[in-house]
Design a protein around this nucleic acid. Structure first.
Lengths: 109, 109
DNA sequence: CCAATAGTTAAGTACATGCCTAACCAATCC
DNA sequence: GGATTGGTTAGGCATGTACTTAACTATTGG
């Protein structure tokens, strides 16, 4: 069991993105919503395996899905990726922060 | 085994960051280098366990370490986190991209 | 209605992860 | 030199992850 209990939102997102198949799914969904079948196609694995990946992504809040008729449509929940991005951008050393300021200065001119 | 073979750099970084103890280590190292002992202190686990976490972080390229005398000093390798950040910022939907442009416009005025 | 399509559930397997304890090594300190 | 400090190695255990196949359900097109 991981060190901390269940409510580790950022951790779930990073864990979801650690798998190349799941990142491929995300990369596909950036271009718009897709059905499970379509997401499965390029992935060289069984449908149930894909479903598990989708569950991990959905539990992490990276995607949402809803069923219309017999097809489940999945789409990205962009805010969640932004949260992870924000955690990363928070981890800057003092040196980096100075470079960032220089950067802003140059852009602002 | 994950779907793809070993040379998945971004995947290793995300996997390293999925664990709360490892993120705590990163958050500490943002404020400057530290010895293994110091990193272990707030973590409520054995030294060997901490060492394994450090190995995961080092294999992912998130940190580097070198031994001076009997103490191993660890520090952040900021570029690696930037790589992960860049992957995330690449995953923007069309809608988000438009918001970003609006954002840039407002800032640039 | 029947068959094909899209998805779901269940159960099983192989391997990875996150911890532990115990034993060990090598640089310091007195 | 001997004890202490900081780190390392080895082995083991419980749980989690990434798949698989087989069987099943619900929608839909002809």
């Amino acid at each position: 069991m991981p060190n901390q209990s269940g409510i580790d939102a950022v951790g779930r997102v990073f864990h979801a993105l650690a798998d190349p198949s799941r990142r491929a799914i995300v990369e596909r969904l950036v271009r718009g919503p897709a059905a499970v079948k379509e997401l499965a196609e390029p992935l060289a694995m069984s449908l149930p395996a894909v479903m598990q990946h989708l569950k991990v992504l959905e539990d992490a809040g990276v995607i949402v899905s809803e069923k219309h008729g017999r097809v489940r449509s999945c789409r990205l929940e962009p805010q969640t990726l932004r949260t992870a991005e924000r955690w990363l951008s928070g981890q800057r050393t003092e040196g980096e922060r100075q470079l960032d300021q220089l950067d802003d200065y140059l852009k602002g001119t």
